[in-house]
Design a protein around this nucleic acid. Sequence first.
DNA 1: GTCTATATGCGGATAGAC
DNA 2: GTCTATCCGCATATAGAC
Lengths: 207, 207
Amino acid sequence: MTTSTKERILNVAERLFAKQGFPSTSLRDITTEASVNLASVNYHFGSKEALLGALLDRRFRPMNELRLKFLDTLESDAAETGKRIDVNDVVRAFLAPPFEQQTQGQLSRTFLRLVGRIHAETNEQHRATFEGLFQDVRVRFTIALQNALPHLSERVVRQRMLFLMGSMAFAMAGSVTPTNDAAPKDDILEPLIQFATGGMSAREEKP
Amino acid sequence: MTTSTKERILNVAERLFAKQGFPSTSLRDITTEASVNLASVNYHFGSKEALLGALLDRRFRPMNELRLKFLDTLESDAAETGKRIDVNDVVRAFLAPPFEQQTQGQLSRTFLRLVGRIHAETNEQHRATFEGLFQDVRVRFTIALQNALPHLSERVVRQRMLFLMGSMAFAMAGSVTPTNDAAPKDDILEPLIQFATGGMSAREEKP
DNA sequence: GTCTATATGCGGATAGAC
DNA sequence: GTCTATCCGCATATAGAC
């Protein structure tokens, strides 16, 4: 169970960024809690910003790859059976992967909070970094949702996709506090999927 | 059109907090842009934290009072006619007031972003301040939604209320970018109401 | 790779003249 | 009420010994 300095920094930074936000977390907070030297952050990562970038890359990349893999499966299944893809399944393919990330069972909650934080972040530079990792996913899922909801206008599908991400981010950022921490998948993911599917499927009324 | 120093500080602070977030906005940013002296913030408000408090009080209080007024009207109408309140109407009573706040037409977008920020904020102290201003609204609307959706469990209604707030916060924080800034009410509010109503009304599936 | 020490700047807050 | 000047702490980042 030897964790390198680099990994210890990443793990602690992840937790503190999730808890306090990026600007309010100092390198001193991180290095003190990780029991590593202050200068080691700049040695290993170059800067605080680069540390965040490394962090996002470590987690968001596999998460988004999993999303796309789920969607691939849905689409090839649909191609075989000739049936239209179900909205509920697309929503699930998008929302489930963040909840699969729980490597040790302990990281899950922390990571969910970080996802929420990053989505809610308005800093231009962070948004750009994040968008680079997220673009493929957004485009592919928007198309899939348009196919699953052909009666809706493109514009509304795109917009509802963002509403969906808002529910997700907020749920993950910690505002949704289930009575027990045991099963975030059952306590948060399933209700979230139901809500989001209902929202995506709502009738479009144009006044 | 004489604006006092105090008002100028409030207006600029509102815009900058909305744009950059609270921790990343310095008093120097604010006073420079407002063309007032640095020391005036502490003279008029006491501290940066207190400035935020004053800001929230100025905007959130009337906004939340409007929400409750709308809900009062809905409930007294329902009592007269004997009909159950419609979910869509409750959702509208909750979501519309932030969009009514546009004093000059120019403040609206800024204020919506701030609302989103504050909701997404995880800082303990800010959450406490905010919750004090918001508690009544949350309780009253949760009860109204439970009455409008009697087939749902209390737990799920409470949880969906938070998902709804997530969509709202995210939409307001600026991630939803309509092609034109002209009519946020039509471009954001109406689609948001449709999405949120659909989500709140979704069937509750217990596996 | 890891440490100490330090450079350099920005942050909130305040003292005290006007 | 408004200004200048300043205190003082903490921030990121780096230089250079080990």
